[in-house]
Design a protein around this nucleic acid. Structure first.
Lengths: 226, 226
DNA sequence: GTCCAAGCGGACGATCGCGTCCACTTAAGA
DNA sequence: TCTTAAGTGGACGCGATCGTCCGCTTGGAC
């Protein structure tokens, strides 16, 4: 108790407030996974067992909540980039990076949309880390090209192309890991210089018909609202 | 006038009704292009210069309106498939099909979402034509594989993977034809058996930063829920 | 010109999500 | 234990969209 109060004092936040904040984050991840990041704020609050006001106090905007909920995943992405740069073989690093980020997008529902939505924050700190990420990734690309494995005309912006396309795919088919793996395999293959066809993961169990049943659910991709 | 009344009599629809229906379709295409297919019905009605009731009479659900608005594009897709089957070189046909459909998705805003959203209709007629499309596409794939140009492990369901991924990309970046072309080129390349790297269209003018400015707009892809 | 049913438009009630405000509760220091 | 300010919850007002209802208009047949 003395300890908890000491901890509390450290950041000047009451224990119950911190507890609620955590509850809200857990609830947000669950709700976003089920209904997408446009789920009503009230739903998140109810799930967390707190009032709406509490939710808004901790996260004044939906964006803040989304960012909070997926902060951990964003860190994983950042770590993957660091690891990729440290890898002895730059192509391995590159491949690992793409696969890791796509696996996150695939496994953590709601994360893909969050990933895209979270960036616009122009706030200094995050802008800086984003800038660093861009620089690091460019370095990785150059090295992989120098090693001869990555095609010379690969452009760093192609990563954005891959991620957005993949995001669209997993958003439309939240349950189909096979489709996601298949896309990533195809793309990675076309990025290599020696592109003799290598084995692919098994095809998605999709007919156009089943596909459309799938897109019926929640999560269907309508801009959303837009 | 005698003629117009004869035409009217033919389908038992009054001339002004048919005119309004057409106006609504034009307005719907325009509004969907600007705001996405979740735009308020009232906006479409106002744009068409008709009342909401008129809109609802012609198209009782949003889905019906969406389907009506993009029927022409759907037909273009169907025609592209027919042409592909008729092409002397099956690979050329395959490539032409993929490029045509993706070009439509890229150029006609709102169409990608419509394309995905329109399918669920299980109604007999469309179900039949969809079934036929599936069969025809499978034939095309087999022929292209037999000719040796298309990799043997390409699966017809991979078309759905491509279209959904591409749809996600153009939804997120409605203005960036370069990104779309780039993705299609990469994928087509990885579908060939002889995959010596061929020249790509120029890279998208994207930094992660600019990318995120772009996703700020309307049309942002939020599953909408999801 | 006359008639009438098909067609029209917009007002309206219902629903939903947002974000704030304020009276009540409780953590935690003294 | 007492105090108090930080924290809480839910009611509330607002605005947007939906889809229907009903009284008016008009195409087109005679």
């Amino acid at each position: 108790m003395a300890e908890s109060s000491r901890i509390t004092a450290r950041d000047g936040v009451r224990a119950d407030a911190r507890r609620n904040r955590e509850r809200v984050l857990v609830a947000a991840r669950a709700v976003f996974a089920e209904q997408g990041i446009d789920a009503p704020m009230a739903t998140v609050a109810r799930r967390a067992g707190v009032g709406v006001a509490t939710l808004y106090r901790h996260f004044p905007t939906r964006d803040a909540l989304v960012r909070g909920a997926f902060a951990q995943q964003m860190e994983t992405c950042a770590r993957a980039l660091t690891e990729a740069l440290a890898a002895p073989d730059p192509w391995q690093g590159f491949q690992h990076l793409v696969e890791t980020v796509c696996a996150l997008q695939r496994e953590e529902r709601g994360f893909p949309a969050a990933f895209v939505a979270a960036f616009p924050e122009t706030a200094s700190e995050h802008a800086r880390s984003r800038q660093r990420a861009e620089r690091d990734f460019t370095t990785l690309v150059r090295r992989a090209q120098a090693s001869g494995a990555l095609r010379a005309d690969f452009h760093p912006s192609d990563l954005a192309v891959v991620l957005l396309a993949h995001c669209g795919l997993v958003t439309a088919l939240p349950d189909d890991g096979a489709a996601s793996r298949r896309l990533v395999a195809y793309l990675l293959q076309s990025f290599r210089t020696d592109t003799a066809n290598k084995p692919l993961p098994p095809p998605a169990a999709l007919t156009l018909r089943s596909l459309l049943m799938a897109t019926d659910g929640p999560q269907g991709q309508r801009p959303p609202r837009g």
